[in-house]
Design a protein around this nucleic acid. Sequence first.
DNA 1: CGGTACTTTCAATCATTTTTGAAAACCAAT
DNA 2: ATTGGTTTTCAAAAATGATTGAAAGTACCG
Lengths: 177, 177
Amino acid sequence: MQLAEAKEKFIQAWGALGSNWGINRTMAQVHALLLVSPESLSAEAIMDALNISRGNANMNLRALIDWGLVQKEHKSGERREYFYAEKDIWQVAQQVMLERRKRELKPVLKVLEEVKEIDPKEETPETKAFLESVSNLSTIVGQADKFLDIATRAERGWFLNTLIRMFARTMKSDSKE
Amino acid sequence: MQLAEAKEKFIQAWGALGSNWGINRTMAQVHALLLVSPESLSAEAIMDALNISRGNANMNLRALIDWGLVQKEHKSGERREYFYAEKDIWQVAQQVMLERRKRELKPVLKVLEEVKEIDPKEETPETKAFLESVSNLSTIVGQADKFLDIATRAERGWFLNTLIRMFARTMKSDSKE
DNA sequence: CGGTACTTTCAATCATTTTTGAAAACCAAT
DNA sequence: ATTGGTTTTCAAAAATGATTGAAAGTACCG
């Protein structure tokens, strides 16, 4: 396979993954492109590589900067801006976890708490079932949140080791517990 | 707050969360509705509760069944079908992890492997950077996949305990490692 | 200043996804 | 085998989300 072909394939796959997870396909593609570019790229270069308009490139670059995944660079002497992506994938993952937690998990947790405050006069089975579901849900979502918080702060090595340890345990006691 | 109001709020929040994560808003709402209904519901009831058409209700119910989150029930004497959701949230979470892993993580892992096979004659910095990014990426994605595999099989209690242990550790050695 | 080289914005357009609703298929009871 | 209640399908319509492109904005330079 040629490099160009491989890049293309990777960019497409990353775009598809993104769009399955609620991230704008083009934004994911721009990110993919920057990830595999050793040098920072101008808006121009990105537009050309992905066949998108200036406006589109600009918007998605801003969004990526907003997510903390991409940064601007001013090359001295040059007037135009260049963009490059954080290359340490663990950092990228952490940044994504941080943002999604903030943007999506927190609001849901908030609603779950609010919704627990039902007028307790209603003692129907419906109310009971509702409160039970909600409280289970907020337990799990809360745990996920806590977990992501840990992952977000952890050193890559520590986190990895813990995973391995967990994995080893599971293997040993596989179908018995 | 009244029960009806609380339900509505919850259904909306769940729908919004779903759509941020690439899941059809209505599908998430149907799921939410069934989650908080102690009794199984007919398609009719769901259509009414969410103001959606028969076709829409049907399609999303099928999709939920497909994801293993909802099941049909035939009430004896009745001709119409009733639907209910798995209420154990840990099981729901596991099912979702299982499906997304299968549907989205696996294909990406496959592409990452394919894309490593570049004609090694191209020894440019671009090729190097590309291969490095890809290999880092497949390490992380592979680890995420393995982690989800564990989570997917684990008993709720065991998993929770491990999380707590991880959390305790992090707290103790917070900013030093 | 005024010009040049860019970046940003945003209303209009285009593309994709979701929803509808009516027709077809299904299926149990007569 | 016909009826009536029900589910399923799917082409078309509606809604939503993404993209464009041109105009407005910004900043640097002489």
